[in-house]
Structure formats: C-alpha cells, structure tokens
Design a protein around this nucleic acid. Sequence first.
DNA 1: CGAAAAGACCAAAGCGCTTTGGAAGACTCT
DNA 2: AGAGTCTTCCAAAGCGCTTTGGTCTTTTCG
Lengths: 340, 340
Amino acid sequence: MNLKQLSHMLALSQTTVSRALNGYPEVNEETRRRVMDAAKRHGYRPNPSARRLATGKTGMIGYVLPTGAAVEIDPHFVEFLSGLGDYARSHELDLVLSPADADDQETTYRRIVANRQVDAVYISSPRPVDRRVALLNTLGIPFIVHGRSEGFGFDYPFTDIDNEGAFHEAARLLIQLGHRRLALINGDDRETFAIHRERGMRRALTASGLTLGERHICSVTMTEENGYRAARRLLEQSEPPTAIACSSLIMALGVVRAVRDLGLTIPGDLSLIAHDDVFPWLRPENFSVPLSTTRSSIRLAGARVAERLAARISGLEEGARGEVWPVDLVVRGSVAGAPV
Amino acid sequence: MNLKQLSHMLALSQTTVSRALNGYPEVNEETRRRVMDAAKRHGYRPNPSARRLATGKTGMIGYVLPTGAAVEIDPHFVEFLSGLGDYARSHELDLVLSPADADDQETTYRRIVANRQVDAVYISSPRPVDRRVALLNTLGIPFIVHGRSEGFGFDYPFTDIDNEGAFHEAARLLIQLGHRRLALINGDDRETFAIHRERGMRRALTASGLTLGERHICSVTMTEENGYRAARRLLEQSEPPTAIACSSLIMALGVVRAVRDLGLTIPGDLSLIAHDDVFPWLRPENFSVPLSTTRSSIRLAGARVAERLAARISGLEEGARGEVWPVDLVVRGSVAGAPV
DNA sequence: CGAAAAGACCAAAGCGCTTTGGAAGACTCT
DNA sequence: AGAGTCTTCCAAAGCGCTTTGGTCTTTTCG
C-alpha cells in the first residue's frame, strides 16, 4: 500500500493525502479525518526510503563506533545505550552504529554526514579539544556530546555530570575523616572526565594544604586487572595512601582483591570510594564491604541525550546549551577514619 | 557531485556510468576505467538514499533492541557488538538498532522488514521455539541466529557454541575429581543456552549414576548479586554441593563473595567452574583464586555473525546451515579433588 | 556476402515520497 | 457586481539512483 494507491482509493491527489497525513494546515479537517482514517484502516505507512530521498530526514541518530582489535568498547556503553533506547523507542527513532577504525573516525563522520545517513549524532568519551567536536561543528549536523570537551573558540551542546564536584566531595569527606595521604585510580587521563575528576580531587587537597603526588595517581583503562595492579603499586609504597578514590566499580573490584592479597582490610587500613555508573549487574552495596560511591546513572544520561537529540532534530532545541548533572555521594561501609 | 553531473562531465549517459561503477559487463573496459577514474578524482559517492529507493538495498544490518525500564541489556551484548563492528567496518556495513518494547518486538520486526530498513538482521538470546525465528522465516528477510532455537518444522541458519558439550566436560572433570554433589548456577532457563548447559551437566551426572536435584540448580539473571544469593542458598543447605558450575563470570564474582562470607575456601571446600565469554575487563585468571572456565569468545562470534550476514546479503550463503563452535575447558586453581 | 550475434551505449521509466506553483470555488468587502 | 482574499485541492517537478527496452555499430559464421 503506497501513497498512490491510497490517494486513488480516496479520490484525492497524492499532494492532499501527503499533506493531510503530515499535518499541514491547507487541508479541510473533514478531509484530513477521512485520510487519517483510511490510512489507519489500510495500515498505510509511508516508505521511509522514499521520504528520505525527498526530505533528507532519516529518523535515525548516529554513533560512530570505534573498532579494531585493540579497541575495547566498555560496558558503560551498553548501559548508556539502554537509556538511549528507552527514549528512542517511544519516538520511533532508530540508532545507527557506524563502525570505524579507531584511528580514523573522521572519514566515517564525513561519510555519514555527506550521505545524510542520520539526522543527528552523539559523541561519547570526549577529550579536551576533541577533534570530533570541531569536525561536527563545521559539518553542521545536529549533535550532542556526552561528556565535555574544552578550549574551543566556540560553544557546543553537551550533557555531562559534575565529575569535578563529585571527586571534590569524595576527597573532602576523606580529608575530614583524617586522611592525609589520598590516592586516585583514574581512567584514561586523555579523556576529559578523568581530568575533571583529578582536578576535583586536587582542589580538595590543596584547600587543606595537601597534595596529590605523582606516586599517588594512576591512570589506566578501566579493567579489573588494572585496578588490582594500580592498588598494589600504591599500597606497596613506603608511604602508602590511607584512602583511595577510584574511577569505576570494575576497577574497585581489583582494588578490593589487592587489599585482600596484601592482608589489609577495608576500611581499617584503607578507605575506598569509587564512581558508580549504576550497572544492574554490579552494585556497590554488594561488595564484601559495601562500597561508598559517587553515583550517577549513565542510563539516565543516555535517555537525556536521546531526548535532546530528538529536540534538536525537530528544531525545538538550539544553541550550545551545556548541562551538568550533580552527582550523589553515597557513603557506605568502605570509608572510615584514617588509621592512627 | 551526483550521477547526473558526473555523467555529463564524461559525456556519457547516466546508465553507462552507473553500470561502469557497479561492475556490469556491458561496458567497455576502457570506458570503465575512465569512469572509475573520474569518480575517484571527484570523490563521487552514490547517494545511499537514492540507491536504496531504487534497489531496496540499504547496506545495513538490523538488530531489535529490547528496551523498557525493567530490561537490562547485559554486557555480553557490547562485546558481541565489538566483534560485529570489527567485521562490519571493513565492509562498510552499518548496524541499526531498533529499540522495541521488550514485550512486543514483533511489531518492530514487521516494521523494519516492511520498510526495508535493513538488508538482514540477527537475533540473540533465542529461546526454544522462539517466535522471532518463526516470524523472520515467514517475513523472508535474511537472518542469522546467535544461539539456537528448537523444535520448528523448518531449519534456520545459526551460529552457536557447544554449550551442552562445555558443561558436560566441566561436570565430567568435577566428577573425575571425586565430586558427587554438583550444583549449577545458570542463566535464565527460558533461554536455550541455559537449557543446553543444564542438559550437558545432567548427561555427565547421569553417566556416573548421579543426579542434579532441584535443590542444586538455580536459574537467575546473570548479576553479581544473583550469583551471591544463589551460592548462599546452595551452600547453606544441609548437604551442600562440593562443586559449582556457573554460567557467567559476573555471577562467579558473587559466588566467590558468598564463599568468603561463609568462611569457606576455594578450592578447599568448593570447586568452581564458570563460563567465560572473554571480557577484556574481567579475566578469570585474575580472580583471587584463578578461575577454571569454559571459554568461548563472544566477540569472535559477533564477527562471524556479521560475516555470515554479509554473505547472505550478497547471496554467497544460502540455506539453513547451522554451525556449532567447540568450547575450551581451561583448568585453573579453582578446582580440586572433593573434600573428604 | 548476408544474416545473426555480440558489443557498447542511451533515453526514459520507474522507486514512493514531498513540495512548488498554480487553479477553482467560496467568501468578504466596498 | 467586481476585486480581492481565503480555503481547499491538484498536476507535475523534483530527490538521485537503477533498470528496462531499445538502437546502432561491429564482429562472427555458414
């Protein structure tokens, strides 16, 4: 059932039927009802390929997926995706993932824009002065950054959490509890979120006349193993930290294992706070010692990004508004006063 | 730069240029070279929307993503996706995720087929007599099932691992080590993979005159917490198992925690084998006691599924061939002889 | 040598929608 | 009553590609 058949059946022109269906004003309300009715009854659905060719609109949002043998898409992505899907579903938006060589994403971005394959895209895990942001800005396709980039000569729309504030609060709490030697096990420090977390922590330390020495900071891919290694390195120093802030729950698993291997205890010998993106399959309250966290649902962020993309596509949102979500600090058993 | 311009520039018809570019035989080789050359020089790329409308081919593969507040997409998905992306990238295939209400995926499948939104789709986490398989079979779109379904009046193409064989081997090993009371912490037993694993284990037990009692089997969503709970339930019985087979590494984390909470040890009091899908961020060799596993890379499976989909799209693969990959049994420190 | 076959190319008709540029009739207003 | 204005609808021209159904020229072969 296509437009031609439908309009013939209604003894109307394709023009009128098309307009009736798409809510244009220049059509009699009575006629519109008739059309709507017939369309529903016959299950007419406009062919998206045809519509695409005519309008350029695709009803899809895009994401360039970095791939390659050495590239690991981490589990955060899937949780973000869930949120995105939650929103997208109710708006019949599809998501297209375009796999790209991790070292040359630009080609793919250019392709999907030139080909008009999607109406909007989002970017995740941005770095400071991220080339993708600059690129999309010049290409002129609607986009949202999940996270933040910095230091451009222009503004851009983003949705981010207050990583700096979160880790500032976490560090402040630890300091209040008497800790003097804090350490940070961070994610990849080429990414903005990691830089912000470090900055937040440093700010809290400085305010109390403390510092975050080179020896007390690690920056690694967020795997269990790297968490373990980092913790061992930190704790086997001559002056080990008495508290650690950790950028992910998965790494925190490794930290806990290291602590145990070294015959230490949490929170007796070490206080631990980790960032929790809220995975359904790994909860901080279920750690052997319930884990204190800075918490922010990455799933909700996904839904929000989808919502904003939809708004931008339909022209409801414009400009470069950035939003920063606060992060909860949730205190559980893994923090205590510094050992004497 | 579109076809019209290009052909005008070459003083050829659109027909000839199109055919030259698409490798049709009825064009002079000399002419073809000229065309190819000009196309490359001017960076001509056929507009996919137009091509789509004309041919119905999209260059995309589809996946219906179940969503909803209660639905958790698990981390296996992202790893599978990585593999899919690895292959898809080299073939300029994109992947479109269509979010659907988890309870009504059929509507979405019908939509993407009716609209010709993708050239092929894949299905994951199939159940026995999975309605999606039956549906896609009647809808007549190329598809591959990742996993297996059972009991149709027709065959279908799938790529699966030998779940039954894997858990059969695992159980056999445990029995050889003298264990008599085995337990299984399984995934959702409405899914085929879980049924196969149980079947494999049962087969091994039966062969030795043993059984898998109702009290020794759990079937839960694969989260850390559920692993913990299941293990507690099993181990606090009057006649607790001396060995557990577990369907995922994430649940195994919970098992290890439970064992520790109960003051038991691995492998002294309990032998543990888990299935490992090979996540880069959580490795069995890094468990406090290195974990024995049945291992099969889900990422490789993703690449294979993409490859087969591509083959089916281009007509290189036909029929209902199913393939079953063997699973490695990797023995590490978490298994030992049964306690006396 | 003449007929048939093969080779190389093209004009034009789709694919199914949106949108432009009217046109016809009804209504208002002076 | 005639000019102007709405309201409501339509024919046809795109969007940029593929493909059908030729035509014209050259080659092959009995």
